[in-house]
Amino acid sequence: MTTPDPAAVEAAAAAIVDAFAATDTDRYFAGFARDATFVFHTEPSRLDDRAAYERLWQEWLQSGWRVTSCTSSDRRVQVFDGGAVFTHSVDTAVTTADGPESYRERETIVFAVRGDDLVAVHEHLSPLT
């Protein structure tokens, strides 16, 4: 197995956050493995693969949802043989059909080395109070 370079993990996480901030669907989901799982405090159950999240994302877009800003802070990278854990705090603002909303959350993204690629295999969001 290969232990990823912390800078590569930072770059992979930044690419995901930047794509999310731009509401760039293709670029955002490119950072996740097809079998990635997602746990969001705003959803009633775990999303068991990327396709499930992509369907939910499309529903959000169709309802008028768009990200207007997303700022990452308090980052930490922990590497291990075969992958890494990236944690940070995130401040997000969105526009919805009902108007603007904002969130302060903590996020964990678990990355795995797959061949020559570093891909996200799990994302977990919890509210930051």
Results as ranks from 00 to 15, higher is better:
M1A: 14
T2H: 12
T2R: 15
P4N: 08
D5L: 10
A8Q: 11
V9F: 01
E10C: 14
E10G: 12
E10H: 14
A11L: 07
A11E: 15
A12K: 03
A12F: 07
A13G: 08
A14E: 12
A15V: 01
I16L: 13
V17I: 15
A19C: 09
A19D: 03
F20T: 07
F20H: 09
F20S: 09
T23G: 03
T23V: 08
T23H: 01
D24H: 06
T25A: 12
Y28C: 02
F29Y: 09
F29M: 03
A30F: 03
A30V: 04
F32D: 02
A33M: 01
R34E: 15
R34Q: 11
D35W: 00
T37Y: 00
V39A: 12
V39K: 04
F40H: 12
F40R: 06
T42Q: 13
E43A: 15
E43W: 14
P44Y: 09
S45Y: 10
L47Q: 11
D48P: 05
D49H: 05
D49V: 01
R50K: 09
R50L: 00
R50Y: 00
A51I: 04
Y53E: 13
Y53F: 15
E54L: 02
E54N: 05
R55S: 10
L56K: 13
W57Q: 05
E59Q: 12
W60S: 13
L61G: 08
L61Y: 09
S63L: 08
W65G: 06
V67I: 11
V67H: 06
T68P: 05
S69F: 05
C70K: 02
T71P: 03
T71W: 05
T71Q: 09
T71G: 03
S73Q: 08
S73F: 08
D74M: 06
R75E: 12
R75V: 11
V77E: 09
Q78W: 05
Q78E: 15
F80Q: 13
D81Y: 05
D81G: 08
D81P: 04
G82Q: 06
G83Y: 01
H88T: 10
H88I: 03
V90C: 13
D91C: 00
D91N: 09
T92W: 00
T92C: 08
A93D: 00
V94P: 02
V94H: 02
V94D: 00
T95C: 07
T95K: 12
T96P: 01
A97I: 06
D98K: 10
D98E: 14
G99R: 07
P100N: 06
P100E: 10
S102M: 08
Y103R: 00
Y103V: 00
R104L: 12
E105F: 03
E105V: 11
R106L: 15
R106G: 10
E107F: 06
I109K: 13
A112L: 05
A112W: 00
A112Q: 07
A112K: 02
V113P: 04
V113M: 07
G115R: 07
D116I: 09
D116S: 13
V119T: 05
A120C: 07
A120R: 03
A120F: 02
A120P: 02
H122V: 06
E123G: 01
E123Y: 04
L125E: 13
L128N: 10
